[in-house]
C-alpha cells in the first residue's frame, strides 16, 4: 500500500486519501472558445509520465497537489495549492 506525504499531516497510507483527479491550472473560461473549453473540462489523457494530481487527506480535510510519475507509480513531491501552481 502506497504512502503519500500530506504536506500538513505527513506520510500516511494511501487509504487515508481521496484522489481528486488530474490538476489543471485554472483557466479563465471567458478566454476560451467553446471547443477549447470542452477540451478543458472533458479531455483526460492517459499518457503515462509525470502528472500533477489533486489528493485529499480525508480525516483532516486537506487538499494538496502530488507530482506523480504514474509510469513508475512514484510520487516526486507534494505541496499545498497556491495560485502560483497555475503557472507552469
Amino acid at each position: 500500500m502506497k504512502i503519500l506525504n500530506c504536506p500538513l499531516n505527513g506520510p500516511r497510507p494511501i487509504q487515508e486519501f481521496h484522489y481528486g483527479g488530474e490538476f489543471h491550472p485554472p483557466l479563465d473560461p471567458a478566454e476560451l472558445n467553446d471547443a477549447d473549453w470542452g477540451q478543458e473540462v472533458h479531455h483526460r489523457h492517459g499518457e503515462p509520465g509525470v502528472k500533477r494530481e489533486w489528493w485529499y487527506h480525508t480525516a483532516s480535510g486537506t487538499w494538496f497537489i502530488a507530482e506523480r510519475d504514474n509510469l513508475k507509480d512514484h510520487v516526486i513531491q507534494t505541496y499545498l495549492y497556491t495560485p502560483e501552481c497555475g503557472n507552469d
Binding site: H18, G20, P26, W54, Y56, T58, G61, W63, L80, Y81, P83
Partner: peptide, 19 residues
C-alpha cells in the same frame, strides 16, 4: 463538502467551511 474545500483553496477567499 470536499469539493467546496477545494474551491476555497482555488478561489483563495476569506471564508470558513464547516461540515
Amino acid at each position: 463538502y470536499r469539493e467546496l474545500l477545494r474551491w476555497r483553496q482555488i478561489f483563495q477567499l476569506n471564508v470558513q467551511i464547516s461540515n
